[in-house]
Amino acid sequence: MIEWFAWLQLAVAVLGGALCVGLGLAGRKPTDLTMGATALVEVLLLAQLVVAVVAPLTGNTASGSLLEFYVYLISAILLPLAAGLWALIERSRWSTVILGVACLSVAVMLYRMLQIWTVQSA
């Protein structure tokens, strides 16, 4: 994991999540903006997957459990996909909120992943 990239990604997920939850509660159906924000979170997660695979080859290894790291990463990758699919099937305001919930969940998981990679915990 590259630390600054993880923090950037975390910021995008938090901002995107807040945007979607806010717009959803305001009654907006999923739009290009909210779907786009979720898609951006997803693309960054895929980039993170590449980084996680390549980084150990350059000596940047995880300090914690790799198994735990990858379970988080794979779960995180699934979330925006599931929420996005949901938003395509059901065009309601709640789908927008769900996009946001998925992004915010990804943010929490990214934080845990960063902890696992950088600070050896349990």
Partner: peptide, 28 residues
């Protein structure tokens, strides 16, 4: 319908989180 969908979504996320964690604990 409506806000109930949100409840399902959050339950789904928690189910995923709990499953992932318990997988790591039991395997590791």
């Amino acid at each position: 319908t409506g806000v109930g969908r949100l409840l399902i979504a959050v339950y789904g996320v928690l189910a995923l989180a709990a499953t992932g964690r318990s997988f790591v604990q039991i395997v590791g």
